[in-house]
Design a binder for these strands. Sequence first.
DNA 1: CAATTGACCAAATGAACATTTCGGTCATTA
DNA 2: TAATGACCGAAATGTTCATTTGGTCAATTG
Lengths: 190, 190
Amino acid sequence: MSVNRKKLIIEAATKSFSLFGYKATTMDQVAKIANVGKGTIYTFYANKEELFKEIVDNMIVEMEQEANDAINPELTFTENLHLTLYRLLEFRREHQLMIKLFQEEREIRTPAVLEIVEEIENAILSFIAQKIKIAIQKKYIKECDPELTAFLMLKMYITLIVDWERIRKPLNKEEIAELFDLYLFKGLSL
Amino acid sequence: MSVNRKKLIIEAATKSFSLFGYKATTMDQVAKIANVGKGTIYTFYANKEELFKEIVDNMIVEMEQEANDAINPELTFTENLHLTLYRLLEFRREHQLMIKLFQEEREIRTPAVLEIVEEIENAILSFIAQKIKIAIQKKYIKECDPELTAFLMLKMYITLIVDWERIRKPLNKEEIAELFDLYLFKGLSL
DNA sequence: CAATTGACCAAATGAACATTTCGGTCATTA
DNA sequence: TAATGACCGAAATGTTCATTTGGTCAATTG
């Protein structure tokens, strides 16, 4: 074997999906970028969707590493949670593939992309839920449903960062941290 | 004047928009239901969109009455807030026009409907923001940005009722009240 | 004469058909 | 035996044309 063709294909596919999204990426294109015959792709992956899934799964693994790296054991749970979520959202903003996918999800609604975006959301959710479970065990926070809490946290974060930006001026890192802390942890009641 | 033609037109249009949505409602249809010449509609409204706006504005007024009726001065601010939001969401679920509009917003994306749905959301938001301002003044809750808080509350409520229902079993009225109270008012910190 | 009407028009819509694109196969090749 | 790219059919896309529909206005009505 002269070169690792599978690796070439993965690299080419990652590049193309990131640049053009799922729908606009053709198998011919991937084959061409990878300098590989189109049929070769089908010796490794049964179809376009499977190839896509491989690329996205790689990305999810990277995301989890990214998130874990953000955690600093010397800081409080709240601070760490915020750092982690923020890192994930920054990651999303930076990461070409992520951006293309979320765009494609709302604009084009390709079924394969809808499915995958849901998978990504689930990966993020179970990651957060995991951390919440530990926090409850260690009595850092009140007793609560970890999954529902994770869900609410993610939605709230997205609301603060993405949705609010659409109608008012965007909030910076510190403001978001403060608000997140006020609303979810301290609570509004006096 | 034998009959109030404007009233006939409003009733016919309300019926048709509620039943078929904005796009699927034709001016011929409205004229026919109202037993009125099509041209007569144009003596009262410049175009279809204006007629639509009249109908929706009526609905918003009804919604505000509905919400205000839900308020019971003997209950706490938190309880009242919950009752109000819940009533609004129930209202939305019950009200034909509201349902059709929200459907049309995500499925057909008629520009006129997108605009109007935004207007409805704004009406709800300023209503909540109003109540929050009073609550801050009266020291019922902590100092905070009323608009952002209203925005977050609405999104959180929708998350709990609509979004969560899509992935897990739906929450009932009491559960939602409890969660809303836990997360937003009491806070998670110990 | 003021209010009302519906035939009429231009623009938007969508059905039907033609054309192109693209995922996936497989006979051929190295 | 691994790799390839010409080829196939289905699905997406583009095109044409008949129908629908928002809006106008001359005729009509009371």
